[in-house]
Simulated scan of single mutants.
Amino acid sequence: MVYGDGSLATVLTHYDVSLPDQATDVRFHDKESLIGSEGTLFLHFKVSDAGLTSFLQTLNVGPLAPGAPAGWDDREGRRFGWSSPDSSWRGARGPAEGTVTAAVAVARADGANSVYVIAEHV
């Protein structure tokens, strides 16, 4: 099931984000900024290890490291059910395509990766 503002395909195109084919349990929220930016995407999905590797390469955020990404701010995400990263999480931050930056936090549970993404236009 997908939750969010607008269609998933339109929102992903706006942020230059491509979901892996194997993504399940996809949920998103597209928050438009009141100060004139082009908004922030909050995206969650579950995926296999192969799908995660492909996603990180496509998003161009670099390798995952222990802990949450630098500057991770998921306060908005927690409003709609996101978990807060703890010491068992892995994270990465970096440029996505074009004018978008992205931060990714990943938790492994029940044989799948639970992936949380915050993407923003800069």
Rank of each mutant, 00 (worst) to 15 (best):
N60G: 15
S114M: 05
G98D: 07
G81T: 15
S83Q: 14
Y116D: 10
A107N: 11
T101E: 10
A119D: 01
G71I: 14
D30W: 01
S7G: 11
E76C: 09
K31P: 00
G71V: 09
A65R: 12
H44F: 09
Y116E: 10
S54Q: 13
D30Y: 07
R78F: 06
L19C: 10
Q57I: 13
S88I: 10
R108S: 11
G81R: 10
D49Q: 10
A68R: 08
R108P: 03
G67D: 04
P69A: 12
H44C: 07
A65M: 09
T10F: 02
V100R: 06
W82N: 13
D5L: 07
H29T: 10
D49A: 12
V115H: 00
G4F: 04
P20C: 11
T40W: 01
L56H: 06
Q57P: 02
S7R: 02
V17Q: 01
V11N: 02
A102E: 00
P69E: 05
E76D: 09
L41E: 03
D110F: 06
G62D: 04
G94L: 05
A70T: 14
V26A: 13
L41C: 02
F45L: 07
F28G: 04
Q57L: 14
F45Q: 03
Q57S: 15
D86N: 15
T40A: 07
A119N: 02
G81A: 09
A9P: 01
A119T: 01
V100D: 02
M1S: 07
R78Y: 07
L12W: 00
D49T: 12
I118E: 01
E38K: 11
V122S: 04
A92W: 03
V100S: 06
E76K: 08
V104S: 03
E97P: 01
G6S: 05
Q57K: 14
P95T: 08
G98I: 06
P20T: 03
E97H: 13
F55Q: 02
G4P: 00
E76L: 06
R79F: 09
S33G: 15
A92H: 08
A23R: 04
V61L: 09
N113S: 00
E120L: 06
A50E: 13
A96F: 05
T10A: 12
P66T: 10
A65F: 03
R90W: 08
K46Y: 01
D73T: 08
S88W: 07
D86Q: 08
D25L: 14
P85F: 08
V104H: 05
G77S: 06
V47W: 03
I118G: 03
